[in-house]
Nucleic acid binder design. Sequence first.
DNA 1: TTTGGCTAATTGTCATGACAATATCAGGTC
DNA 2: GACCTGATATTGTCATGACAATTAGCCAAA
Lengths: 254, 254
Amino acid sequence: MSVQEEKAFPMGLFMDLERSGPIPLYFQVSQRIEKAILSGELPAGSRLENEVALGQRLGLSRPTVRRAIQEIVDKGLLVRRRGIGTQVVHGQVTRKVELTSLYDDLTNTHKVPSTHLLTLESQPADARISERLGVEEGSPTLHLRRVRLADDVPVAVMENWLPGEFIGIESNDLVAHGLYQVLRSRGVTMRVARQHIGARKSTNEESALLEIEKNSALLTMDRTAFDNSGRAVEFGQHCYRPDLYSFEVTLVEK
Amino acid sequence: MSVQEEKAFPMGLFMDLERSGPIPLYFQVSQRIEKAILSGELPAGSRLENEVALGQRLGLSRPTVRRAIQEIVDKGLLVRRRGIGTQVVHGQVTRKVELTSLYDDLTNTHKVPSTHLLTLESQPADARISERLGVEEGSPTLHLRRVRLADDVPVAVMENWLPGEFIGIESNDLVAHGLYQVLRSRGVTMRVARQHIGARKSTNEESALLEIEKNSALLTMDRTAFDNSGRAVEFGQHCYRPDLYSFEVTLVEK
DNA sequence: TTTGGCTAATTGTCATGACAATATCAGGTC
DNA sequence: GACCTGATATTGTCATGACAATTAGCCAAA
C-alpha cells in the first residue's frame, strides 16, 4: 500500500545542453526536471536517477547536478533522503511562489487585468511611511492608490508609497502595466519583500470600490519590497476580495 | 545620502569552529553571521568581508563560506551583488518564516498556549479529505477540532485530518503539546507544506468559540503537510482572529 | 566637462576528488 | 521468528582550482 513506485528515470531527456550559451548548466537541468515533474513525465513518488549517474550521463560534475536538483527541492517538488535517493513529492497541483505583483498573477491565470487610478500624487512621508521606506520624515514620496480589476470585476484596492526619486511615473504607465513592471523598466530589480497577511472588515468606501456588501471580510497584505542594494523601493497596503483572491505559500523545511 | 556605510567586518568573530563535531561548518558560520546581523553587530547596509578572504581567515574553503552566506541570503537578510560584494539588507525587524505550528509561534512570542479539544474521533475520508491526504476514499482518518488560546484568549479554531495510522493519538497529548510536536515525537519529520491563506466571515459557532461578534472577518489557512518521503501527514483548515494573528512571509527573488 | 576604456575587486559557475552519514537489504545467528 | 551484522547505495559535507561575468573606480582623451 504505502510502497513507493520505483519507476526508471526517463532516458530520452537532457540530451541537448547549451554549453557555451549564457544560461547556466544547472539551470538548464533544473528547468527540464521541473518541466518533467509538472507535465507528469515524472509521476509523484517516482525516484530520480542518483546524482552521480545523472552527472555522468549528462557529462556534468556532481556539484552541478546537485545544484540543479536543489533548486527543485527548494521549490517543494522534490525530496531528498540520504541513503535513499530523490523522489517526486506526492501531492496534486504545484504552483510557484515568487516575488510578483497582482498584475503578474492575473496575467498568468489568463485574466484580463485593468486598473482604475484613484490617486497619483507627491506626498511628504509621515512617521509610518518614513520608517517603512527608510527615508527621512517629511521627505517627498510618490503616493498612489489604485483599484485592480480582472475581467472588469474589482479584485483589490492597492495603496502604495515609493521613494521620491520615482516621482515622475505617469498615470499612463500605471494603467497599462503593473507597478512592478514599471519599476523594472526603470532599472529597479526587486530582490526581497516582507509581507504581512491578515484580515479585517471592509470600510464603506472599500465596499463600494470592490462592489461588495458593507462590512464584508477583506484579505489584507502589507508589503515592503527591497531592491538588490537593500534599499526599500516600495511600501504597499493592499486589500483583496477574498472570494476572488487568496495567497498560496509553499514552505520547505531545511 | 544614498551612500552605503562601509564598515569593516568585525574581526573578533568566527574564531572557534567545531571541526570534528556533528554540526556542519557552513551551518556554524551562517548561524554566527545571522546572529551578528540580528544583534546589530553587522548594521544594515554594512558590507561583509569577501568570500575568499573570509575563507582564508577561517581556514575554510570558498564553497563552504559561500554556502554559509547563501543560507542567509535565502532568509532575506543579506544581498549579494557580483562585482560589489555582500551587504546586509536595509530594513527593520527580521523574523524567520519556517514550517511551524501555531503552538510553536505562540511559545516563541512568550505567550502561554492552551487548547480546548472539541473533537477527537476516527472518521472515514470523504472525497475532499482523500484527495488532500492522498488516501483512498472511505479509509479511516483521525479527525480533530481544537480551539487554541494564548494567555487564555481564543486565537484560532483548527480542524485537522490525519492518516489512519495516527489513530491512537490521545487527547492528553493534544492538550499539552502542539500537533506538530506530537507528530515529531512519533517520528514524523515534516518537510514540505502547501498553504492557502484567505479570509471570510465567521459562522455563528466560530464567533462564539473565538469570542468575537457575529459575522466578523476571519483569517483562514488551509494546509497540507508532507513528510520527508513525500507522503501527506496532515490536512488542516484553520481560522484565526485577525486582531490577534497574522502571517509574515519573506520572499526572496533568485 | 564628459566620455570612453582599462584595471581591480568580487561574486557566479563548473570540474574533480575525497570521505562521512544514513538508509535499505540480505544473510546469519540465537 | 526475532535480532544482530555487514555490504551496498545514496546523499551530505568539504577542499582545491580555474575561469567567466559584472561592477566600481580611476585615468586619459575628446
